[in-house]
Design a protein around this nucleic acid. Sequence first.
DNA 1: CAGTGAGCGAGCTTCCGCTTGACTT
Length: 767
Amino acid sequence: MKKHLVIVESPAKAKTIEKYLGNTYEVMSSFGHIRDLPKKNLSIDVKNNFEPTYQISAEKQKIVNGLKKSTKSAQDVWLASDEDREGEAIAWHLCEALGLDPKKTKRIVFHEITKPAISHAIENPRTIDINLVNAQQARRILDRLVGYELSPVLWKKVRPGLSAGRVQSVAVRLIVEREREINDFKAKDNYKVTANFVASNDEFVSELNAKFDTDENTRRFLKDCIGAKFTVSKIDKKPGTRSSGAPFTTSSLQQEAARRLGYSVKQTMTLAQRLYESGHITYMRTDSTLLSNQALAEAKSYITSKYGAKYHNQRQFKTKQSNAQEAHEAIRPTNFSNQNIAGDEGQNKLYKLIWNRTLASQMSNAELARTEVSIKISSRPELFISKGEIVIFDGFMKVYGRKGEDVILPELTLNQSLKPKQILGRQTFSKPSARYSEASLVRQLEELGIGRPSTYAPTISTIQTRGYVEKKDLEAKEREIKVLSLINEKIEESTEIDNYGADRAKLVPTPLANVTTDFLTKHFAPIVNYDFTAHAEKDLDLIAEGSEKWVDMISKFYSSFHKLVEKSETVSRKESTQTRELGVDPSTKKPVFARYGRYGPMLQRGEVTDEDKPTFASLPENTTLDNVTLEDALEMFKLPRDVGKTDEGELITSNIGRFGPYIKVGKTFVSIKTLDPLTITEKEANKLYKEKKKEIDNKYIKVFKGGIKVVNGPYGPYVTNGKRNVKVSDDKKAESITEKEAKELLLQAPIRKAPHRRKKAKARAKK
DNA sequence: CAGTGAGCGAGCTTCCGCTTGACTT
């Protein structure tokens, strides 16, 4: 008997759906898009109505062949890709590739993988919505035009191999601008005053409702407090509530997993993918906070039976993002009764987070009792305020959120008089905006409507691999703060060391990002504007409604965009590399420039047109192209410098290179991480050189004929012939390996494939 | 993991969004 063929996007989904549909249906998967614009060139005929040329990519050919075969033997075909722009396009591409008539082939959609949803879908087929397909084509073509016309401009004007795009260039811009904001930030200081009172043997803290701008004013306040009377002037008790957050979307899951578990967005997505494939959670790339009716009902029964009806509060959270497509449910457990799952530690932690969050979203608000006590000072108008908070009913906090650390104030009565044990006035500084983490950048992009759940993690990777952004731990800086204290009616002043600015895994822009962003914001402002995507989305909506033609939208965009591309050709290299003349070197009478070079920021002395070639030097540490001075630069031109001689009488020189400061003896380079090449002494240099020599002597455990070596590598000993590397197994002693054994090991070595080739191609490109 | 930076010109690079594995180090 011929079966009905249903095609979905995800193979994991296919398995589940097949179970629900029974054996008269065969469910197959397209593994996402099956056709796309070829990578090697633009593949858009801009002179012929932007006609795109699509191609089935090599890795999808097999899948398409399989689908074709099943199509031929099937009774009919049902296209069940996701209900969004991309899903509609996938359905249309499937028609094109499988030879189906888009006007006749059945198209079905479901937002959730539950039996009722699937039955409902099967009963209500429609045909492909070509307007929605065209909106996707417009999106695709727009992105290709921007990416493939803008990137080559950067190759010419900034550096080969760079990339620019509607999403990534804005992501980089956000990071560049945040860093500049932080650098320009001037911290303001003021004085925060706290008092420790004692009542019925309990000590509690109170904070003054005013801050002082100077230490003098703080001192005056403390002085006024000597001999003053402190009385409770107001006790305000009121109830409060706290409510749970919405179930997870991709973006909120990435943020919470980073905050609570310390995962990178990539780690989170890999773990979630495993959980999805093993059937523990629903789809992990979603922008919706909605739960299926089935999930709502299951949560209800689980919560009522486990915690009692009082804890249940059924709720559906509206998705806030305006561009959300809501093709899927929120990320939730597929079965609430699974509190734990079989899987590694990472999967378990992430699962638990999802389980807790989903359940909490269906639980009651927490109820709190809040108390605010005001304490009057007889000699001053300000008030000391103490706040207490007690959890009366924990509600959702039973499973999610901080376990409400109660702040309990002692029993106080109106007009009660209090004695301060101590009053402190502490200098505090205002803080600049925080640097972006991976997750907070995703949140910002989502807020701007830029990027999709499936691209957040790859975008974060791209901007790092292109060298625009680095993930860094930032060390704390120290500053002195003043502390004024009033104890036993005596005022004392002291200083404390305040460690500030320490931060983990934050995104920091490189000089390349600064140069590129400045270039793009100056010459391609419309593309890197924060609302470019939002405007484009409005047009895409019009196309999807059928009230605008996609070719009109693209053609309108392209005519203005392409003009910018043409105009950018006239931008001088001097401008695009941000060349700045620092002054003239008094000894050579040549001009000194700071600019962005082939390998990063650099200094140049003399012009290219000079008879003798210009000389180059690195930027001194802790300076940038914007703030480096002529004096700084002249110091750098003292390099390379003769440091002295080794014990064997060889010359030692010092310099700064691509990988930082180094000393050089013959052909041996030694990094000097903390020392300054301008001041390093002969003695220091010799010590480092000897250590390096020892390391080199230890590197080769054995050297055989024909270039075969046993090498002490960073991951343990390995055998190499220069082409292939084989790890020496742990049970073997590297020192005892014979030439014969080494040869045998090399024969077993795997041939390095694609990633290796790619690396080589990159290396070639650099040259 | 190697110590540059001009300019010449070969041939290369590049986008965003859907999906999974197969790569290593």
